[in-house]
Design a protein around this nucleic acid. Sequence first.
DNA 1: CGCAATACCTCGCCTGTCAAGGTATCTACT
DNA 2: AGTAGATACCTTGACAGGCGAGGTATTGCG
Lengths: 117, 117
Amino acid sequence: MSIAADLIRGNTDMIILAQLMNQDSYGYRINSRIRSATDQRYELKEATLYTAFRRLEEAGYISSYWGDEDSGARRRYYSITPQGKLAYQKMLEDWKIANDLISRLITPESDCTTEAL
Amino acid sequence: MSIAADLIRGNTDMIILAQLMNQDSYGYRINSRIRSATDQRYELKEATLYTAFRRLEEAGYISSYWGDEDSGARRRYYSITPQGKLAYQKMLEDWKIANDLISRLITPESDCTTEAL
DNA sequence: CGCAATACCTCGCCTGTCAAGGTATCTACT
DNA sequence: AGTAGATACCTTGACAGGCGAGGTATTGCG
């Protein structure tokens, strides 16, 4: 994957919550969706994914339950909580703000000579 | 500051290099610029700033020299190297890509029912 | 003289990422 | 029956970046 690994750091939680805004889902599927949504250009490492689940559950942003599939491997489903939805909204706002700030910082005005030291 | 701390992680180097694209500068001033460019909403913590300088110099992206001011505290000026400029361009590209990917991931299509499991 | 502002720096902790390893189930092929 | 691959879960330990807390030195002001 290589691309944008560290850049996405700090957005993992938001990405996972976003996936759960639609509907309950489980680890493997969430990652598949991320992969397809990014044309195979990005995915969460499993360790990262499952640590994030623990963290989000700890924070009360998601809750989990075992699926009752009668075939295939067992799945642990995650559901976003009301607090999780709030947190997601907040993360979205923060992300937009951060983006705005960063874009200001990496496209500096060319004029620097006139300003005082 | 609070806002967007972890979100900017991984962008620190790019931000610093961007400041040096214009002209040589020094730690304190770079941070002042960041503060004013963001309307006082963001700044690098000093520890973060100076570790970044070490890291960037180590990588060969910047070089440093002591200013010859005959008044005021001594200043260590930093200059971006040709490699640094290349790295900066690359970081910019990566940032754009990462942004594109993230925005895809946090604004999911509402239709999910039709697709195969 | 003391204080604020400018200007630099380091140590050590915390947190998030991830390589590496592990488990179990089901399908398909040999 | 064996085995390979996909699905699906999980943990441990190392590493890197951010940053709180602490430090130094200079200048100017009241």
